[in-house]
Design a protein around this nucleic acid. Structure first.
Lengths: 190, 190
DNA sequence: CTTGAAAAGTGATTTAGGTCACTTTTAGCT
DNA sequence: AGCTAAAAGTGACCTAAATCACTTTTCAAG
């Protein structure tokens, strides 16, 4: 477990250094969780008590529309953060599902503990500030790609940007992430 | 000018209180800017030296595709923050335009000054952390709406969510924000 | 008030991508 | 290795929305 916590410390310290005292306080606020492929991390309708840092593994976050179709909001793997951020932040029942595409391990942070470490340790507040800002930037680019690009060029773009992800994820899920049908995606490129 | 700065202080203090000393330091890091309708705040290809808090007025942030078509990323009015966040954060030439739909006033914050006040005043770091997180949540919802809803229901949704905005903005810009053609939007509801 | 430009509306036509139905391929599990 | 189920490919057809071309309405500036 200590090595896994070290990975998390490294992750924090990519942006801002922490003293040993600060880190010992910070790490005590996380709890560990492990899930097998196909198990759920978050389910629509249930409370969302944590945001999750992924130690290793791969998950998908998605919503299900009225016709039962799944729409992928995010793929998240090792070193990523994932949650139903909206439900988590407002402490209300979630509206999306997150489940494991591979066996996965997580460090879990409650809202209360997140606010505690952010107020106690300014470096952590700054860490989450920069992380959220980067996340915002990524989503803006995804929105622009949805507004400006054809489904085919969004696919090419993703192939370039995250080639490793494409390997690990069935194409029908990629299709759902891109907002295109499985059949149409299958007719792309060659 | 002091009243305008007071508005900014109130904006910060909606989330975290500041001492007078902190505020005096923070406010000294902003500069004022005023633009008339149709003037540009940010232009594609140019450096993006600031992020902007809008004192009053209304702007649109958009990109232009290869066919010259405009795609609206964001409308921003009083109390909103706007920039080409990607270019600003990475200090590289911008790829979007921001121009004024109405006469507008701004407080401008450089990256250097933002980092300075965030490191100096933890409440400010926490302010931007929460703001970015909320922004992230909003963009996730917009992505979901693009993936799951028809153009018509996105329009109805926007009518409910931001009725005041619809009043202030020509419908062809709303269409561009929703990712639908002007003509198609015009055929909706009635 | 007038007038020129921008915005909005509308019909006709085209098209990207969805849906349905079925086949082929691939990947896990005993 | 053999079997089942999921994933991927493919043809035929359909539809939401784009595009094009034009008219009507609204608005702002002299």
């Amino acid at each position: 477990m200590e090595e896994k916590l070290d990975l998390l410390r490294q992750h924090f310290e990519e942006l801002f250094a922490l003293t040993d005292d600060e880190w010992n306080f910070v790490k005590s606020q996380f709890q560990y969780k492990s899930l097998k492929k196909h198990q759920f991390l978050i389910q629509s309708g249930q409370s969302v008590d944590f945001e999750y840092w992924i130690i290793n593994g791969l998950v998908k976050a998605y919503s299900i529309d009225d016709k039962g179709k799944e729409h992928i909001l995010q793929f998240a793997m090792e070193n990523y953060w994932v949650s139903d951020h909206c439900a988590f932040q407002h402490q209300e029942p979630g509206s999306i599902f997150v489940d494991c595409l591979e066996d996965s391990e997580f460090f879990c942070l409650s809202l209360e503990n997140r606010e505690k470490i952010c107020l106690e340790v300014p470096a952590v507040a700054n860490f989450f500030r920069i992380k959220s800002n980067n996340g915002y930037i990524n989503l803006q680019q995804r929105i622009l790609s949805l507004l400006t690009m054809t489904a085919e060029s969004r696919y090419e773009y993703l192939l370039n940007k995250l080639p490793k992800l494409i390997q690990r994820v069935p194409k029908k899920l990629i299709a759902s992430y891109l907002g295109v049908s499985r059949e149409t995606l299958s007719r792309f490129n060659s």
